[in-house]
Amino acid sequence: MSIYKRAQQWTTFTRVWHLFDAKWQNPFESAKIIQKYLAGLHKPIYGPSADTGDHVVVINSKEIALPGDEWQKRVYFHHTGFAGGASWTFAWELHEKDPTLVLKKAIYNSMKGNLYRHTKMERLHIYPDANVPQEILENVTNQIRRPRLIPKRLDEYSEEEVEKFPKLIDYPEDYVIQKIK
């Protein structure tokens, strides 16, 4: 290969580092998106045996949101290999022990069970909050969009906005509002 062609090859097959903010996102929805970037399915040069996958850095995995009552109902099974070593852990328990695991497992289980899976998982970096080591954050050049919008909390609205908001009814003047402390 000539020097020019070699440089072109490097450019085309560069491994890009993406960032994903998992705050208030469904880990299973996010897994589908992130898994695509890890596999290289976001590139038109994708090939199943060509390793075109990218790195993904996930932040705020502590603040993921499972749908419905999954925090109480979803269980993660583990067997140590020894007799009587089966254990079922609730999602909330697992999240307390390691806040990155729920998302990591979601991504792992969304992938096909072939030999590429471990390589792809090695390129995934999950952090429970926004504290990412500087060496890794330096590599990041792209941000993946969230699947869901984070709704605005009531206390995030300013007083002007609250006053401006159209009212259907209003409390009568002598109504006593008890403040909850």
């Binding site: 072109q8 450019t11 085309t12 960032l19 932040i59 941000q143 969009r145 969230r146 919008l149």
Partner: peptide, 27 residues
């Protein structure tokens, strides 16, 4: 010129500090 990750990349991303709130909004 063959495709590379930089061909269709918005040059405005070069000035962005990651993580960026605007970029992570859904389209």
């Amino acid at each position: 010129g063959p495709w590379s990750p930089f061909v269709n990349r918005d040059p405005k991303l070069n000035w962005v500090e990651f993580p960026n709130e605007d970029l992570s909004q859904p389209i």
